[in-house]
Design a protein around this nucleic acid. Structure first.
Lengths: 196, 196
DNA sequence: TTGAGAACTGAACAATTGTATAGTTATACT
DNA sequence: AGTATAACTATACAATTGTTCAGTTCTCAA
């Protein structure tokens, strides 16, 4: 076990700063200062910035991926979609810094983000296939792109978060009111489309 | 008018490199070398990196925004959606570097990308409102989020391009086959949803 | 042809980056 | 208490960054 003021606090500070300002735009020294620690210690623990990013990836994956994509019951449609959406929203509410981090990581291209991406794509694809077998999916649906569309609707807002909050939402994406509206819109779109 | 080997070639090189590797990750020296020019000249022309980014933003906005969001006829639904999608796809085919650049700029947060974002959101919103008046939109649709969903489905793939192409598509997003499949999936989703 | 102004370059600057080294302090086991 | 091991720091280094400055080359009208 690591002490609270050591290894973990560095990762915690890095996770927050990476999510706020981006990984490439955050220096080792900023992380060290935020963690109340010397830059050399960061190198000593993680071998360098690359290692630090790997550690942050690991932590973020464990904290989020475990909660969101762990093995759980798979309810029948039509509740499945709504339930999955609510579950994702709950994880986002509980781990906003992790969400911000992955929003950055996914577009900056860390190794961990590629793993997360594969995880989500595979998980999403499996769910889509299961739905198709039960006859809940449109028969002519493009399953690969259906998976990707799910992914975009959920994750793109996190990557565009600063732009989105300042230019369109006028508030934090992960605030309850906005988050709920977002989830509701997603469910509606996926279930019924936008036009008629 | 500028000479071909001067001002413009620098912006051209910057646009390409920014799109390929990101804005923050591309140095003035790399841009200068790619343009076959000394770093000092870049500063001389644009005042610094900030000015260069502004110039690239300007060029990209003119080249893309003009083509995609200019004043044009507004056909009636149900052809509108398909037609708009085809139009966007055409612009993407014709200006792949500009697309790559905006994919980066939108998540890195340049001033020009904020302008593009506002432009697209306002344009999209206007179109949604027009559709609603004609009764083509679902009555209970959340118009703000409907606009954003359009935006995500179109732009997120560009910001996730590297990840997407390597992990899910196995080819260039802007290649004809993949691009067409993408557009078709978007139209389907917006028109009819994914489930039933 | 000449001269003014623009385009352009080479070399150097200070600041910041990630990282290595040598040394100090704390922890914990015997 | 003593000692080995880990945690931690101060300092320095090389590389890269954006930027400046003094000077050169080009362009073109008078």
């Amino acid at each position: 076990m690591r002490s609270a003021g050591g290894n973990d606090s560095i990762v915690q500070a890095a996770l927050r700063l990476f999510g706020e300002h981006g990984i490439g735009a955050t220096s080792l020294r900023e992380v060290a200062k935020a963690a109340g620690v010397s830059p050399a210690l960061v190198v000593h623990h993680f071998g360098g910035k690359e290692g630090l990013v790997a550690a942050v990836d690991e932590t973020a994956l464990r904290r989020f991926g475990g909660a969101a994509y762990g093995s759980e019951e798979r309810p029948d449609p039509p509740d499945l979609l709504r339930q999955r959406a609510e579950q994702t929203a709950r994880v986002m509410r509980e781990h906003p810094e992790v969400c911000a981090y992955f929003g950055r990581a996914l577009v900056e291209g860390t190794p961990g983000s590629a793993r997360l991406f594969r995880l989500m794509i595979e998980g999403g694809r499996a769910e889509i296939d299961a739905l198709a077998e039960k006859g809940a999916l449109r028969k002519d649906a493009d399953r690969l792109w259906a998976t990707l569309q799910h992914f975009f609707l959920i994750w793109a807002p996190l990557s565009f978060m600063p732009l989105l909050e300042q230019e369109a939402l006028g508030g934090s994406l992960l605030d309850d009111a906005i988050l709920n509206r977002w989830v509701a819109a997603n469910v509606k779109l996926l279930e019924q489309g936008l036009y008629r």
